[in-house]
Nucleic acid binder design. Structure first.
Lengths: 350, 350
DNA sequence: CTCCGAGTTTGGATCGTTCCAAATGCGGCA
DNA sequence: TGCCGCATTTGGAACGATCCAAACTCGGAG
């Protein structure tokens, strides 16, 4: 039966040491499970730690040891389920390794990204996992975080020219191969006039996905009309609004490879508004395999990226880097897999 | 043109002080924008700070000032878009207030919750926002985090008996009113035999939602058959599997108020498998308004909870508490709003 | 009876910042 | 010249942990 007297002041090592008549150093050794300390002393100290309700001050320890116990995770969009799952994966591994996750959201703004990085870096994380905001550049990022802290870039490349002393690891999806698979699948279904729809060409992931599409089209000897490549913000709403552009000029496409699932779902909406039934009159594919993809009408053919696993992987890559700061820079490309659902129908026989 | 010499050792106040011939104290004053320091000196120091690429060590400052600059966010399920948006909202406000978010995911396990809380507390957050794992108790939570750090509970109550010295703020959704609205809406549509489907009665939110349903039914003078209340895990899969239970005994319900959207989507699946068309032969409502709700077939009538706004609100409530630790405990109930979509059809005229 | 060494314990300095009381410089006034 | 007050600057002691070299205890060997 322990009586808990609500205390204002925080309990420190010295309090515990005084409480059981040993020195601070001894208590410190007990805390860290050192084999040096005598069994009997250890028991006494541990009892006293419990009794006083001591809580370890990791900040103080980190200061003295010049270590860090946190890893920063900076995301361009946490409201996107893809990144939310990614974050969950990161946090799991980071936690297992005894670190704590410092979270920062940039809402796709490179200005906020700088502010967030600046604020996080002051807390001295051991490393940073960054999924850059659209249009953020290497110079910006380096200016905000310095070159001291190991960086793992996820999902996107940084724009701008790279100072030659800059180096970081990268984990990206195999965007190009993914859209190539999707395009080939549509071609195999019998489509010849295939569009590439949505996204902003400023993003590196856009350029890669578009390259996969172009590659597949060219390999099949199919030509690409200019108006089949329509850019829009990677959101449902903007995608729906831009649908008309696909059909502005003849010949109209019979299928589209979309930049991602959000865009594909928006395109479905836009098609319906024009009286076209997605999955019957027009085929389309997405990218990401968000939860809604399987639930939409028709269910969406897309590319799964296993965001939770990618999160774990990102954290593991960063931990590897922490263990060996001098190792050569790694660029990891994670595979993606085509999931065929009803949205990628054969062309309608008109 | 600045030449960046890659330095291993971290730059400290003393380095800068030495670099421009003033004392550490003066540099510290400059950093904090004190009006005491001479204009000319300030300029010189700021130049030197830039030149050396100084980065502030907030941990050291916090140690000295006995302050904290972080807020811990502990979530039972970050892969749920509802919580992901909530987290984004929290992080935005926390960031604006000059704090940093410490993230912890518990994956709905109260054991992990204890571990996560224990780890986070060592970093000395100014406060904690906790959405408890299922079945986590007040004693557990208090044991892991002590009574020193202000706690804001989100979404769920803690189980177990409360020690009388325990007190914390609460932000919850108006569960009871929400399901009452949904039930009344179904009654207005003409339904008389309405079920309450899904969720675990161990959760406080379940009991509240069920109470709202019961209340509405009783007010309307409608009776509730025992087999119309079917529990299941709040996941799509389990909901689909439990669908049969609703129809095991006569009279079968013609509509169901579901515990949440995941359950409702699962029920739709289950209904389809029985040859019932949701939104035509059977009406149903959800809770949460996750993104899929608007996209499902038929679109799901549900209750919106504005998770992003709830996140902001949670953070603001906690900041308020930090400003006035002695203020009376608050229990905030956030309103929810009924969104009527196609799933809540009138009863089929058989 | 002294000395040795293994097993434990400990005081004091240190990490990078902030606080505080005291020191410094300097123009003005008696 | 001496003293006051204002504006600025500063050395040294914190904050709560860890590191390190030195010290203590004690049984056994010489």
């Amino acid at each position: 039966m322990q009586s808990i007297t609500p205390v204002r002041r925080k309990i420190t090592l010295s309090d515990v040491a005084a409480g059981c008549g040993v020195s601070r150093a001894t208590v410190s050794l007990v805390l860290r499970g050192s084999p040096l300390v005598n069994k009997h002393t250890r028991a006494r100290v541990e009892e006293e730690l419990r009794r006083q309700g001591y809580v370890y001050n990791r900040a103080a320890a980190n200061l003295r040891r010049r270590t860090s116990s946190s890893i920063a995770l900076v995301l361009n969009d946490l409201t996107n389920p893809f990144f939310a799952e990614f974050a969950a994966g990161v946090d799991a591994v980071v936690g297992e390794a005894g670190f704590v996750t410092l979270l920062g959201c940039t809402s796709e703004s490179s200005t906020r990204e700088q502010a967030v990085l600046g604020s996080l870096i002051e807390h001295g994380p051991a490393g940073i996992i960054l999924s850059p905001a659209e249009g953020s550049s290497a110079q910006q990022v380096l200016a905000a975080m310095g070159a001291q802290t190991p960086l793992l870039l996820f999902n996107r490349e940084l724009g701008g020219s790279l100072p030659e002393y800059a180096h970081w690891d990268l984990l990206a999806l195999d965007n190009q191969h993914g859209t190539r698979l999707a395009t080939e699948h549509l071609i195999a279904q019998g489509h010849r006039r295939i569009a590439f729809f949505g996204g902003h060409s400023t993003a590196s992931s856009y350029r890669q996905r578009q390259a996969g599409y172009t590659e597949a089209m060219q390999s099949a000897g199919l030509r690409i009309e200019p108006h089949w490549q329509v850019e829009c913000a990677p959101t449902r709403l903007d995608a729906a609004n831009q649908t008309a552009a696909l059909f502005a000029t003849a010949p109209a496409p019979t299928a589209a490879v979309c930049y991602n699932d959000a865009v594909a779902l928006g395109l479905m909406l836009g098609l319906s508004q024009r009286g076209l039934r997605p999955g019957r009159d027009f085929a389309l594919t997405g990218f990401d395999d968000i939860a809604e993809a399987a639930m939409s009408t028709p269910p969406l053919t897309t590319l799964t990226t296993a965001p939770l696993a990618r999160g774990r992987q990102a954290a593991e890559l960063l931990l590897l880097r922490l263990r060996d700061p001098a190792a050569a820079t790694r660029r990891t490309i994670a595979p993606v897999q085509l999931v065929v659902r009803a949205s990628s129908c054969p062309p309608a026989t008109v």
